[in-house]
Design a protein around this nucleic acid. Structure first.
Length: 402
DNA sequence: TCTGGGGTCCTAGGACCC
DNA sequence: TCTGGGGTCCTAGGACCC
């Protein structure tokens, strides 16, 4: 049929790297092979970033508090995360994927959709492409991947999940309903803890239940967008095309402290640090942020945000700090300790109106760019704002506070 | 089990305008 | 004069994903 139809019946692939962070670590530390490995921080509030399949048999999974993971699997080897290394590996992975087709849509560092319609003349069927990609990834990057292959994105994603680890699964066109209906709704894209609970109220727990429900009841319970989306997905329909990733829409920096911060001066210093870190990333990305959002999570985990739109956009540490300080003033912490602080820049480069630059702006811009160049060459600490120079680290101060 | 850091998208209310 | 029906923008919060 495919030979005469001129295109694949299942033209969408979902490629998902297996235990990505763990496998990247194993590339440089072969002794980690075949052993339970946990990638994650070591602090009291750290969570598991990635668990090897050996560790998963002990009931350990991503996002689990590290303390609990170690309780369940004490023999696991702990490895601190190295995001720089993972990003580098990710670029190699995407290079391989793009060598097959330019129609690659990254979802995160370690997974992507591919539209393989254009490979009709080079391969007999989608499965051979999936296997060729897996071989290339293993040969060129040294990492295992699983691939799902289907008529649309959503089915392909579930298929890759079923194929794990280190496998391939094709869901033939026409068999989508049989494939999906026995599954828990929890596996549908967009159904998390909250929606799952909402669906339970409607007596819905499987995809078959969703199919039996009415679209109106779903929309009422889950909201317009998710309700409709779910209804379509449950019937195996998903028209979304594979669109190569566009630029980031927001950039953020946040940090959870080992112990809650209680000093205003300390809180301001940390926000100021975030502003400068964020500025570095904005400058390197060559964008300005038109909205700035300050995020505060209190000791009891309640989280609030305050944001402001700046017509011309901002990118320098000082400008971000000016805005952040205003936002900070709008927060009443009522004596509560602060667990997390974050600063985010949104609506990147969305500046439409012409901006009148003052001499000081120009000077600042040049200074920020120069500072970034120095940091690129001599390290992140080579140039720091005066406010942060010669001050002890936050950990030290937290201890001293006692 | 006491919950990271980086993102995306959706909802809802209010201000404001015509 | 106690009162419409849009539309857009901004802000805050939250769900969800890896």
């Amino acid at each position: 049929v495919e030979a005469v139809s001129g295109s694949f019946v299942e033209p969408i692939l979902h490629v998902d790297m297996d235990a990505f962070f763990v496998e990247v670590e194993r590339l440089r530390r072969p002794e980690l092979r075949d052993r339970p490995v946990l990638v994650g921080g070591l602090g009291p509030r750290a969570v598991v970033a990635a668990a090897s399949y050996e560790a998963r048999t002990f009931g350990v999974g991503s996002a689990m508090p590290m303390v609990e993971a170690r309780r369940r699997c004490p023999q696991a080897v702990l490895v601190p995360p190295d995001q720089t290394e993972y990003r580098a590996a990710s670029e190699l992975v995407f290079d391989v994927l793009r060598s097959f087709t330019p129609l690659v849509e990254g979802l995160s560092v370690d997974e992507a959709f591919l539209d393989i319609s254009g490979l009709r003349l080079h391969f007999d069927d989608p499965l051979s492409i999936a296997e060729a990609i897996r071989r290339s990834l293993k040969k060129e990057v040294g990492l295992p991947a699983s691939v799902g292959c289907a008529t649309n994105k959503f089915i392909a994603k579930i298929a890759s999940d079923d194929a794990k680890p280190d496998g391939v699964l094709r869901v033939p066109a026409g068999t989508e309903s049989a494939f999906l209906s026995p599954m828990s709704v929890r596996r549908l894209w967009g159904v998390g803890e909250a929606s799952f609970a909402g669906l339970e109220v409607l007596g819905i727990s499987t995809v078959a239940d969703v199919m039996a429900a009415t679209e109106a009841s779903l929309r009422h319970r889950l909201g317009e967008s998710l309700g409709r989306h779910l209804w379509e997905l449950a019937h195996g329909r998903d028209e979304r095309p594979v669109v190569p990733r566009s630029a980031a829409k927001s950039i953020s920096v946040e940090h959870t402290y080992p112990r809650d911060l209680t000093s205003d001066r300390l809180i301001e210093d940390e926000v100021f640090k975030h502003c400068n870190a964020l500025s570095g990333r904005l400058v390197r990305a060559g964008v300005r942020a038109r909205t700035v959002t300050l995020k505060v999570r209190f000791g009891d985990f309640t989280t609030i945000t305050r944001s402001l739109t700046i017509a011309g956009g901002v990118k320098h540490g000082n400008a971000l700090w000016d805005v952040s300080r205003t936002l900070l003033e709008r927060i009443d912490r009522a004596g509560q300790g602060v667990r997390l602080l974050g600063v985010a820049g949104g609506e990147l480069n969305a500046t439409s109106e012409p901006r009148q630059l003052s001499m000081t702006d120009e000077g600042r811009s040049a200074a920020a760019t120069a500072a970034e160049q120095v940091r690129a060459r001599f390290g992140a600490d080579a140039v720091v704002p005066a406010r942060l120079a010669q001050r002890p680290t936050i950990e030290r101060r937290a201890d001293d506070a006692d």
